[in-house]
Amino acid sequence: MPVRRISVRFGPRTVRTVLVAFNFRAHDEGCYSQRLDRAFKHGGGGPRRSGTGSPLPAVLRASGGRSDTVCLCHRRHLTVLDSVSGIRDRQEGTVAFGMFNSGQYVLSGLIPAFRALYPNIHVRVIGSNSAQVADLVRAGRLEAGVVALPIDARGLTMGDVLWSCEAAYFHTKPALTEPVTIEGLLQRPLVLPDSGWAQNDPTRRQLSERAQTVGMPFIPDIEVETGAAALAIAASGTAAAVASVPVAEALGYTNRLNYVSLDPPLIETFAIISRDPASLSPATQAMIKLAEEHMRMLHRQYQPT
């Protein structure tokens, strides 16, 4: 079922949903359907922004304003998770899951969805970079994680690529509207995240390879640890940043900064890795299933053209 942004109008008010896949409570289906019907018919008790206590924080797209379609998404979601036997009855435990730093912005709905279904399972999200997540999984310190590609895949089992999106050039120059080549990128002040992982970072590896083809060294003018910090510096006008469009949108910078594609476009791809899929704990299996569904939805929204 495709996921799209929709605006649902309740009288004079319009609630614009944002993509936070599966970020809703696992209500009993009958009660859930009744609440949806009331929300769509009357509006006053209808969907509100996530965190307000509404039964519909961040409503799933594609409903077209119809509660039966949203309920279908809800039932399908529960069916996926019911296939992981036994975890729903667990009283305690911990799931540790790897995720690169910027992924925590766009996959923010993953953890609330897991906790809504398994409130007694503690969650630890670990990782500042995909290369670090790969090292932790390879060493057995994590069972699985979400990474950006490419990574060093030795000793790892790589899942299918579930999500791809474009990384763009974010800047404050209104006159710059054409795609930026690697030569143009290197001639302008540039800030990049993941300073602690330098050339092991997947996005930097792609940019470094492009620089090598034109015989130029790839050395950013400014290096910071997080994508949020890089975009904040770009917003100050000090330097431009190369960042994932979904991450920039999640942080609110697609409305504050100009951005253009690189030439050729830089496409980031994402997958789930593990060391031994056959020995994954039930909690990790459940987290992976949620992550897979979430990433597929993100892929449909940010499908590169």
Score class of each variant (00 low, 15 high):
Pro2His: 14
Val3Met: 12
Arg9Asp: 04
Arg9Leu: 01
Pro12Phe: 00
Pro12Asn: 04
Arg16Met: 13
Thr17Cys: 07
Val18Trp: 07
Val20Ile: 00
Phe24Ile: 08
Phe24Met: 11
Ala26Gly: 14
Ser33Ile: 02
Gln34Asp: 08
Gln34Met: 11
Arg35Asp: 00
Arg35Phe: 07
Arg35His: 10
Asp37Lys: 15
Lys41Tyr: 01
Gly46Cys: 11
Pro47Leu: 14
Leu56His: 10
Leu56Cys: 04
Gly64Pro: 05
Gly65Val: 14
Gly65Trp: 12
Arg66His: 15
Ser67Gly: 15
Ser67Phe: 09
Val70Leu: 15
Cys71Tyr: 12
His74Ser: 05
Arg76Tyr: 10
His77Val: 09
Leu78Gly: 02
Thr79Trp: 07
Val80Glu: 11
Val80His: 14
Leu81Trp: 06
Asp82Ser: 10
Ser83Arg: 15
Ser85His: 08
Gly86Met: 05
Arg88Pro: 01
Gln91Asp: 00
Gly93Leu: 10
Gly98Val: 11
Met99Glu: 01
Phe100Tyr: 11
Gly103Gln: 01
Ile111Asn: 06
Phe114Ile: 02
Phe114His: 11
Arg115Leu: 08
Arg115Gln: 02
Leu117Trp: 07
Pro119Glu: 05
Asn120Asp: 06
Asn120Gln: 06
His122Trp: 05
His122Asp: 15
Val123Ile: 09
Ser128Tyr: 05
Asn129Phe: 09
Ala131Thr: 09
Arg138Thr: 03
Ala139Lys: 12
Ala144Arg: 15
Leu149Glu: 08
Ala153Phe: 03
Gly155Cys: 06
Gly155Trp: 08
Leu156Val: 04
Gly159Asn: 07
Asp160Val: 00
Trp163Ala: 01
Ser164Asp: 07
Cys165Met: 11
Glu166Asn: 04
Ala168Val: 08
Tyr169His: 15
His171Val: 06
His171Cys: 10
Ala175Pro: 00
Ala175Met: 08
Leu176Glu: 06
Thr177Tyr: 02
Glu178Pro: 01
Thr181Lys: 09
Gly184Arg: 02
Leu185Ala: 10
Leu185Trp: 13
Leu186Val: 02
Arg188Glu: 12
Asp194Val: 14
Asp194Thr: 14
Ser195Ala: 13
Ala198Gly: 11
Asp201His: 10
Pro202Thr: 08
Glu209Asn: 12
Gln212Gly: 09
Val214Met: 04
Met216Gly: 02
Phe218Gly: 07
Ile219Val: 10
Pro220Tyr: 14
Pro220Ser: 12
Asp221Phe: 01
Ile222Met: 06
Ile222Thr: 13
Thr226Phe: 07
Thr226Asn: 01
Thr226Glu: 02
Ala229Tyr: 00
Ala229Lys: 02
Ala230Leu: 00
Ala234Leu: 08
Gly237Leu: 13
Thr238Tyr: 06
Ala239Ile: 15
Ala241Tyr: 12
Ala241Asp: 08
Ala241Val: 12
Ala243Glu: 15
Val247Lys: 00
Thr254Ile: 13
Arg256Asp: 07
Asp263Met: 14
Pro265Arg: 04
Leu266Phe: 05
Glu268Val: 09
Thr269Trp: 05
Phe270Ile: 00
Ile273Pro: 02
Asp276Gly: 00
Asp276Lys: 01
Ser279His: 04
Ser279Gly: 10
Ser279Pro: 00
Ser279Thr: 00
Ser279Phe: 02
Ser281Trp: 07
Pro282Cys: 00
Pro282Lys: 01
Ala283Thr: 13
Ala283Ile: 06
Gln285Phe: 04
Leu290Lys: 02
Leu298Thr: 04
Leu298Phe: 12
His299Cys: 04
His299Gly: 11
Gln301Gly: 00
Thr305Asn: 10
